[in-house]
Simulated scan of single mutants.
Amino acid sequence: MGNTSSMLTQYDIEEVQQHCNNAFSQQEIVSLYERFCQLDRNGGGFVSGEEFLSVPEFAVNPLSQRLLTMLDGLNFKEFVAFLSAFSPRATVQQKIEFIVKVYDSDGNGKVTFNDMLDVLHDLTGQFISEHQREQVLTKVLEEAGYTKESLLVMSDFVKFLALYSHYFWKAYHA
């Protein structure tokens, strides 16, 4: 796949579409390819973390540093697969898998208390104290039937997320 949308063949489009589980239409894939080429300033076929940070909306995202570990060095096919979690056509399962990857700092498929605390810190900054974050997180884990030592896998994380969002909202607006 080259650096201009005219170099993206029908075969390439269909291959990428299949790779992202049809989360994007063919026209959306062409548009994503054009954006990918804009980001790939050196034309190497990969987008670096530095190139992603050139997007203002990405640079100001509180999770941008965490996301960079997932994004740095992606080729076009991987870029579209990454973005597929944000598609309205993505399944709930695909969205949850993405969220777990964001939380799972070491990529072992398990989310720890510290992983969750780190994300909560990234999202809240100085608006909530470290002590408050730990209290909220401990309480939510306990209510979901887990402890600070629990390692949450995908199915556990679904249960946890429902309570987590409720308590985080309450603590943040207290």
Results as ranks from 00 to 15, higher is better:
residue 31 S to Q: 13
residue 73 G to H: 08
residue 36 F to Q: 03
residue 65 Q to V: 03
residue 34 E to D: 13
residue 108 N to P: 06
residue 76 F to S: 01
residue 63 L to Q: 08
residue 64 S to H: 15
residue 9 T to L: 05
residue 90 A to I: 09
residue 59 A to Y: 02
residue 11 Y to L: 11
residue 64 S to Q: 13
residue 105 S to H: 13
residue 70 M to N: 09
residue 53 L to W: 02
residue 71 L to T: 07
residue 97 E to T: 05
residue 63 L to Y: 02
residue 85 A to H: 11
residue 152 L to N: 03
residue 117 L to T: 04
residue 140 V to N: 03
residue 159 K to I: 15
residue 10 Q to H: 03
residue 86 F to V: 05
residue 173 H to F: 13
residue 147 T to K: 11
residue 19 H to L: 05
residue 142 E to Y: 11
residue 89 R to D: 10
residue 87 S to Y: 07
residue 67 L to K: 05
residue 172 Y to C: 14
residue 133 R to I: 12
residue 12 D to A: 04
residue 100 V to K: 13
residue 128 I to H: 00
residue 68 L to E: 08
residue 170 K to M: 13
residue 126 Q to P: 00
residue 174 A to E: 12
residue 9 T to A: 07
residue 95 K to N: 08
residue 135 Q to R: 07
residue 74 L to V: 12
residue 77 K to L: 00
residue 129 S to H: 03
residue 162 A to F: 13
residue 76 F to L: 01
residue 24 F to I: 06
residue 71 L to E: 08
residue 96 I to R: 01
residue 133 R to N: 02
residue 5 S to G: 02
residue 105 S to G: 12
residue 141 L to I: 01
residue 38 Q to E: 14
residue 22 N to R: 07
residue 153 V to Q: 13
residue 34 E to R: 15
residue 130 E to N: 07
residue 146 Y to Q: 09
residue 98 F to T: 06
residue 36 F to M: 04
residue 123 L to G: 00
residue 103 Y to D: 11
residue 140 V to R: 02
residue 105 S to P: 04
residue 48 S to Y: 05
residue 21 N to I: 00
residue 66 R to N: 09
residue 29 I to D: 04
residue 126 Q to H: 07
residue 35 R to H: 12
residue 174 A to M: 09
residue 139 K to E: 13
residue 97 E to L: 12
residue 6 S to C: 08
residue 5 S to M: 03
residue 27 Q to P: 00
residue 140 V to D: 05
residue 51 E to T: 02
residue 155 S to T: 13
residue 44 G to K: 12
residue 90 A to L: 09
residue 124 T to A: 06
residue 35 R to K: 15
residue 156 D to V: 09
residue 124 T to W: 01
residue 107 G to E: 10
residue 162 A to H: 14
residue 75 N to L: 01
residue 77 K to E: 04
residue 25 S to L: 12
residue 137 L to Y: 02
residue 88 P to Y: 08
residue 152 L to D: 02
residue 49 G to T: 02
residue 49 G to E: 04
residue 50 E to S: 14
residue 168 F to K: 07
residue 130 E to C: 01
residue 29 I to H: 03
residue 132 Q to T: 12
residue 131 H to G: 00
residue 77 K to T: 06
residue 82 F to A: 09
residue 103 Y to C: 14
residue 35 R to S: 14
residue 46 F to S: 10
residue 101 K to Y: 02
residue 62 P to H: 00
residue 12 D to Q: 03
residue 59 A to W: 03
residue 99 I to E: 00
